[in-house]
Every structure is written in structure tokens, then in C-alpha cells.
Nucleic acid binder design. Structure first.
Lengths: 287, 287
DNA sequence: CCCTGTCATACCTGGTGGGTATCACCGGGC
DNA sequence: GCCCGGTGATACCCACCAGGTATGACAGGG
């Protein structure tokens, strides 16, 4: 059969990610035996073995690998359905905000564009409330996928637009943000190689899903933290032009000649049919 | 809570589509009272009213409308996960086909391209079996979405590529297919207006999701049927150039000067990670 | 050799999904 | 006006199964 209950998917995802029944069960807030049994039943129903039970641990079969990816998408779509439904209906009963759109943005990025967009949209006759949801972790894709957001500002090439509809809004170059007193801060322009190997100024390393790329630079997970470390002369970082908006007095921005341009898009789930969303997109493309 | 069991989604979709608890229950193979109760529980859990129970029938609230669309996507993603997992795992146990990719195509379209693609791919060293799944109903989108297919040939502007990754393969003009003896069959070229209002040759009307657009022409749901009606001098139809491959002796093809070009794409789910699929796409783009 | 950590098995229990019977309500016919 | 047909909701019951606890089987390491 091709049923496949949400609960079973949740269970399998937990096991597939932990590769350990005990820890997975703990994460799910249940005991280990029923979890084992549920996975066995799932395997029997699908007629496919998903996990290789080696002594000492568990590993995924090819089919398990497929279910891990496809199941993630399915679970995201399911929770998105629940979230968006609640948002659509919450309005009509509580006297709260009539209708809301949740717009995911990268915290601190494209301030000016965002401001213009929100102002222009608010002036539209049929505008609804826009809730801006800033994400420090650059996870606008996930937010669209699991329904935490209805629409997002994304930045190629950092975000992938795969699976979404999108419109291009703005293209900008990138800058190196240096301590004001540093010798390179006096330059007119720099290249990526100029700043990638400065012994006294190692490039900052952003956290990606909790892990950091290797290198000598400080580990960063927060823009303010980074701004401070730059101001203290400890590191250097690369940002889109629009980051000039939040620079401190102790910072100096120098254009990068060979950094890839950053393209800001407005993106939304491909199947979306919301009129409010269509209005926001229309406004955005007219900016 | 943001749970939302697959079963509940299935139930809601049935009611939302039928707008009738009794018929929905019948379609689901269950009795009406438990279905009513399940929907009530769903509404309470989400804290949102989904259906307006008017005396004499049911209608959707705004939130219900949203759940109808989002839920369809979620259910499709779920059954896609099940189907693709079974395909990935079916190979390893039964001695059957090692690994399969299912390629959805519009029945009868792009014969030559398809042939070249399959031949070229079969010559690749790491080729897997390709199962060609022809669809008479032009529903390649749905096939990709619910996992019946892994990859599809789609034809803009007839199919929407929204939500998929795709690569352009071929662009072609369109032709009018006329009865060989008709006076217009002698022309070198025609425009859409030339053929849209011929009293003795009304344009054929294709079925779209079971309904037909209004007009005087015959109702068509099958290519052979259409071919026969043209050969009999009863109707005229518009096709991409590549349709010349299956024309009969009694048919005459005349190029259309102002018909939009047809672009054939190869398309696949945006999140797909299959190596076999990547190989097929690479072959296709090299054609 | 036993101890430890793993997942599987055995068995029991409570919650709940589903069935049947019935109600409440309304609109339409005569 | 009355009754009838058709709607969804309610009441009640039962059986199934998700989940818990206790325990087993099995391998690797001291």
C-alpha cells in the first residue's frame, strides 16, 4: 500500500537521523520497543528494508536514504499545510490581525530594499499585515518549505531557489568589511585573494547547521558578534553592498572586484494561490 | 499542535472535494458518522473552522480553501515518498530490474527526441533501466508530484514547470493538421485566425480534467480519435512540429506563423538527489 | 568470563478509530 | 399544515493497536 502515516514518517526520520533507536525514541518522547516495532511494521508495509541493523548501530539502506530525503519533504509539506491553515483561519475568529503574510528575510540583509517594499506595499489598497520574520541562520528555504513563512527574500548564490517560484529584485556587488585602522582599509578596491590570507586578520567562519568550516578565523553565529570582532581588529568579513547600512564607525568597507554578485529574489512556494501574496509580489517587481 | 495525520488529511480532502459527508465517506470506504467526528476533531486541534455547515450541504471557509491546496501538496509528497522508496528498495531484493527511473511523457509527443534520449542514455556506462510512462492526459506534473514518475518531458506553455527543476531541450513551431483535401491544405503557411473560424472545420476541443471548453468542435480525449476525425474532414487541430511523425496520408500539415513556440523541457523534483537521474539529465542536455 | 550496550520479543493496557442506531433540522411536496 | 426524504450530528459500543514494562538475544570489550 502507499499509505504512510505522518507518525510513521516522524518515527523513521528520527531513527534515520540519530542512527540509534534508543536516542531516537528519547527524542520522540517514547520508549524504544514501540519505536522498533513501528519501524518494522513500516518496512513490512512498504515491502522494503530501510535500515541495516548491524551489531553496534544502525545504517541506512539505499531505500532508507531515499525515504530520508523524500520524507523530509513530505513532513515539511504536512506541517506547512497545518501552519498555513491556522494562519488563514486564525484571523476570522479572534479579532486579531485580519490576514497575515509572513515574510522571511535574512537578518540584517537588504534593509533598504525591505523598507521600500514594506512601505510600497502598505500603500496598496488591498494590503494585508506583513509579519517580518528575520532569520539569523539563513534558513529562508526551510521556512518556506515547512510553512513558517509564506514568502521570503533570498539571496543567490547563498540560497537555492530550487522548488520555488521567484522574481529577481536587485543585484549588488560585495564588499570587504575591515577594521577602520587596518592597512588594507586604505585601498580603493580589493580582490578575494587579497583578504583570504592575511595572517593578522583571518576570515570569519559562519556556522552552517551547527558546524563550522575549518580555518583559523573566529567562529561566528551572530551578526553583532561579528561586527564587534571586526571593530576590535580581530577578523574581516565579506558582505553584499547593502550591508553598508549597518556598519559601525570602526568599520571600513572596501569593494571587492572579483566576488560574485549577490542577487536578491522574492520567492514563494510554487503552488501558492494566495491573492495577498500575489499583491505583494506585484508590488515588489514594480520597485 | 502542528501534527496533522495523513489519515486526517485524506478525510478532509475527500469532504472538501465532495462537499458532502455522505459521498465523501462512501469514497473513503467508511461510514459517515466517524468521518464527521474526525473532521470535527481536526478542526478543534487546528483551532480553525474548515467547513461551513449550511443546511443542505457544506462549503469551504477560507482556511478550508487553504488546507485543500496545501493538503493536496502534502498528500502528494507523502505518497511520492512511499512510491519512490519502494522503487529504490524493490530492486535490492527481487532479482528484478536493478534500479529504475520512471520517465513520464505526453503520449505521442516528441517521439524522435525521446528515442534519441533513450538511445543515448542506454549507451552510458552507468545507465539504469528507464521505464517510459506515457500519459494521455498531459498530467506529467501530477506524476512527478505524487511519485508515479521520477522525471518527465514537459511542454511549455502547456505544462507548468513551477516547483520543478528543469532544463530546456528543444524548441519547435506549431502546425495546423488539416484534411489533405481541404482548400486551406494548399497554403504555404497559416495564422491562428485563419483556422479558428472555419465554418466547415471547427477546431477540436481537448478534454481538460474531464470537462471540455465550449465551442462547436468535436470533443476529443484521444489522439487516434482526433487523427481519424481530421482524416474524415470533420475537424482541424494544432500540434507541435514533431507531430508530423505520426501523420496519416490523409493529413496535411501547414506551418502556423503566429502560434507560440513549444519548448520541450526535461523536468524533475527540485529536491531530487538521485545519481541515476543526474546521469539522465546530463545525457539529455548534451543531445 | 562477565558486563555493557544494542535492538528484538513478549505481554498487557488504555485510548481511540470505526461501526450501528438514532436524533435534530430543514426544505419540499400534497 | 403535515409528513417525508435527505442532511450532518450525537450516543453508544467494540475491537484493534499504539504505547508501556520487563526481558531476551547477541556481540564487543575489559
Amino acid at each position: 500500500m502507499d499509505t504512510l502515516e505522518t507518525r510513521e514518517l516522524r518515527y523513521f526520520m528520527a531513527v534515520a537521523e540519530e542512527l540509534h533507536f534508543g536516542r531516537a525514541a528519547e527524542r520522540l518522547g517514547m520508549a524504544q520497543p514501540p519505536l522498533s516495532r513501528a519501524i518494522q511494521q513500516l518496512e513490512r508495509r512498504l515491502g522494503v528494508s530501510l535500515l541495516e541493523r548491524n551489531r553496534r548501530g544502525v545504517s541506512l539502506t539505499d531505500a532508507g536514504e531515499v525515504l530520508l530525503h523524500e520524507g523530509r519533504a513530505a513532513l515539511d509539506a504536512t506541517t506547512a499545510a497545518a501552519r498555513r491553515t491556522q494562519r488563514a483561519g486564525g484571523a476570522q475568529m479572534s479579532g486579531g490581525p485580519r490576514k497575515r503574510l509572513v515574510l522571511a528575510v535574512k537578518a540584517g540583509a537588504s534593509h533598504e530594499l525591505l523598507h521600500k517594499l514594506l512601505d510600497a506595499y502598505a500603500a496598496e489598497p488591498d494590503a494585508v499585515d506583513i509579519e517580518v520574520l528575520p532569520s539569523g541562520t539563513c534558513d529562508q528555504e526551510g521556512m518556506l518549505r515547512d510553512g513558517r513563512a509564506d514568502v521570503a527574500l533570498m539571496h543567490a548564490p547563498f540560497n537555492s531557489l530550487a522548488g520555488f517560484d521567484s522574481e529577481e529584485l536587485m543585484t549588488e556587488g560585495q564588499i570587504a568589511v575591515l577594521p577602520a585602522g587596518h592597512r588594507l582599509a586604505a585601498q580603493r578596491a580589493l580582490s578575494l585573494t587579497d583578504i583570504s590570507d592575511i595572517p593578522d586578520l583571518p576570515l570569519a567562519r559562519w556556522s552552517r547547521r551547527g558546524t563550522y568550516p575549518p580555518g583559523p578565523g573566529p567562529e561566528i553565529h551572530d551578526q553583532t558578534q561579528l561586527a564587534q570582532l571586526i571593530a576590535l581588529g580581530r577578523t574581516v568579513a565579506v558582505f553584499p553592498d547593502s550591508a553598508r547600512a549597518w556598519l559601525w564607525a570602526e568599520h571600513t568597507a572596501v569593494p571587492l572586484t572579483d566576488a560574485p554578485p549577490v542577487v536578491t529574489h522574492i520567492a514563494w512556494p510554487a503552488h501558492s494561490r494566495s491573492l495577498a501574496l500575489a499583491g505583494l509580489i506585484r508590488t515588489a517587481t514594480r520597485l
